[in-house]
Computed example of a mutant assay.
Amino acid sequence: MRFREELILNIRAPRETVWAAFQDFSSWPSWAKAIKEVSRVGTAWRFRARGQPPVDLIWVAEATERQAPEFLKFQSVPGVPHNLEISGWLRLSETEDGGTHLELVVEGHPHYDSPLLDKAADWYASVFGEPNKLLKVTFEQFKDHLEKMHGHHELSVSTA
């Protein structure tokens, strides 16, 4: 099951802070409840997240284009074991009040070594909305984490 998710968030924190926090992948398990672990694999990062029971979602991705602190394009690393192919981009722009407007687009599809697991994953995703739901919840937690660090708690999340 292929998915495409577009998220737009307005975060009450400076753009440079949001940029640094987004790229601090090793800290993600401390604030993102679904992310179990993140580790370095060469120039890429390996993420392990709670997925469709009994299998976790695992993806290994690296930046393919970076324009600090406003744009990052990423994609899965070919040939590295994982069960979630992804690609996408992140764009950050400053808001008039000193906050950050975040736009994120992620496309992908889970794949498993077993055709039975592939079918089970498709069924689970159609019933429970994974991994789209996982992405939205994770970035709501990202926003909360940053705003708590900066003393702001208003939420404004939308999906396009």
Rank of each mutant, 00 (worst) to 15 (best):
M1K: 12
R2I: 02
R2D: 10
F3K: 10
R4Q: 12
I8L: 09
L9C: 05
I11A: 07
I11L: 09
R12N: 12
P14G: 09
E16V: 10
T17C: 03
T17L: 04
V18G: 09
W19R: 05
A21E: 13
A21R: 13
F22A: 04
D24A: 05
F25A: 05
S27Q: 13
P29F: 06
S30Y: 03
W31T: 10
W31K: 07
A32M: 11
A32H: 07
K33T: 14
K33G: 07
K33W: 07
I35V: 15
I35Y: 03
V38I: 06
S39I: 01
V41G: 00
G42D: 14
G42N: 12
T43A: 07
A44Y: 02
W45G: 00
R46I: 00
F47R: 03
R48I: 04
R48V: 15
Q52Y: 08
Q52E: 10
Q52L: 04
P54N: 10
P54W: 02
D56G: 05
D56T: 15
I58R: 09
I58T: 15
W59M: 04
W59A: 01
A63C: 08
T64W: 02
E65S: 13
R66T: 15
R66D: 05
Q67W: 05
Q67C: 06
A68N: 08
P69E: 09
F71E: 01
L72N: 03
L72I: 12
F74N: 04
Q75L: 00
S76A: 11
V77H: 00
V77E: 02
P78V: 09
G79C: 04
V80T: 07
P81L: 02
H82K: 08
L84I: 11
L84Q: 08
E85W: 05
I86K: 09
S87R: 15
W89R: 08
W89I: 00
L92Q: 07
S93Q: 12
E94K: 12
E96Q: 12
D97E: 13
G99L: 03
T100G: 09
E103Q: 15
V106T: 14
V106H: 09
P110N: 10
H111T: 05
D113W: 04
S114N: 08
S114P: 03
P115A: 00
P115F: 01
L116F: 11
L117R: 11
D118E: 06
K119A: 15
K119Y: 10
A120S: 09
A121V: 15
D122N: 10
D122W: 07
W123K: 10
W123Y: 08
W123N: 07
A125T: 14
S126D: 14
E130C: 02
N132F: 01
L134R: 13
L135T: 15
T138R: 04
F139M: 11
E140N: 02
F142A: 06
K143G: 05
D144K: 14
H145K: 08
E147W: 02
M149N: 11
M149A: 14
M149V: 04
H150D: 01
H150S: 04
G151F: 01
H152V: 02
L155K: 14
V157G: 06
V157H: 13
S158M: 12
S158L: 13
A160N: 11
